[in-house]
Amino acid sequence: MKRQVETITFDGSTLEYSVTGKGTPILVMHGGHSNCYEEFGYTALIEQGYSIITPSRPGYGRTSKEIGKSLANACRFYVKLLDHLQINSVHVIAISAGGPSGICFASHYPERVNTLTLQSAVTKEWLTPKDTEYKLGRILFRPPVEKWIWKLISSLNNAFPRLMFRAMSPQFSTLPFQRIKSLMDEKDME
């Protein structure tokens, strides 16, 4: 996917971002394990005449971690980015772990937001440093190891789709596995 990737510095902190497509602007708050190079779902939006602006969230890509000292502070930087790009208002799409950023941005800067779309977005406190999953994630998904972990997960998904589906489904639903399975077609797991 053809995109322009840049960094800008405000108040001594760097914000990395990408812009792709031409037309009505969409600001995408990517999920975890991603950055401004995200492209999942972008092609259809670009073909429909949208321009997609994706800042790497704090601590991702080349964006300074300090920008994320609070959601309000991060959103202040997103406003500065829109000002830099001379964009008055955007549609916001917040994906997964980008949910809190999108919600905060829309609530603090409603005059800058045309619409807010949450895609499988986190909408409340999810994991804290006290949680085992948080501690494990900090080990498994640190930069030198992360790409190998995702390759392993991908390989396991391809080799054992039903087993992985059973193992992962509790992460995506509050329904018991048997109920989820009863609502699905056999092809859905593939």
Rank of each mutant, 00 (worst) to 15 (best):
T117H: 01
P143T: 11
A97L: 07
L156Q: 11
L127G: 02
S107D: 10
P129Y: 06
I139D: 01
N158C: 09
W126R: 07
Q86I: 03
H84S: 05
F105T: 04
K151V: 01
E125W: 03
I103R: 09
N158M: 09
Q86L: 04
N88W: 03
I95V: 14
R162A: 13
W148E: 12
W150R: 07
G99R: 01
L136Q: 08
H108V: 02
F160I: 05
E146A: 15
T128Y: 01
A167E: 12
S107A: 15
A106H: 11
A106W: 10
M168Q: 13
L140M: 13
W126G: 04
F160E: 05
V122Y: 00
E125T: 12
A94C: 06
A121G: 04
A121N: 02
R166P: 04
A167V: 14
A159V: 06
R138A: 09
H108E: 15
N158R: 15
L136I: 15
W148H: 15
E111L: 10
L152W: 13
R138Q: 15
P143Y: 06
M164C: 14
G98P: 00
P143H: 09
L140S: 06
W148P: 02
V113I: 13
A106S: 15
G102H: 09
R112P: 04
L156A: 12
E146R: 15
M164Q: 12
E125S: 08
F141G: 03
K135D: 01
S101P: 00
L118T: 02
F105L: 09
G102V: 05
R166I: 12
T115Y: 04
S155D: 07
L127I: 10
R138S: 09
F141I: 03
C104I: 09
A97F: 03
V122L: 08
L163C: 03
Y134L: 02
A97R: 04
I149E: 03
Q86S: 10
V145M: 14
P144E: 13
E133S: 13
Q119I: 13
L136Y: 06
I153H: 04
K151Y: 05
T115F: 02
A167S: 14
L156V: 12
V90K: 05
S120R: 06
D131F: 08
V122G: 00
A121H: 01
Y109L: 10
P129R: 06
K135T: 05
Q86P: 00
A167G: 11
S120I: 03
W150Q: 09
T115M: 04
V122Q: 06
V90C: 05
I139S: 04
I95W: 07
H84Q: 07
R112K: 15
I103W: 07
I149S: 01
I93C: 02
G98D: 00
L85P: 03
V92W: 06
K124I: 03
L156K: 11
G137S: 15
P110N: 12
W126D: 08
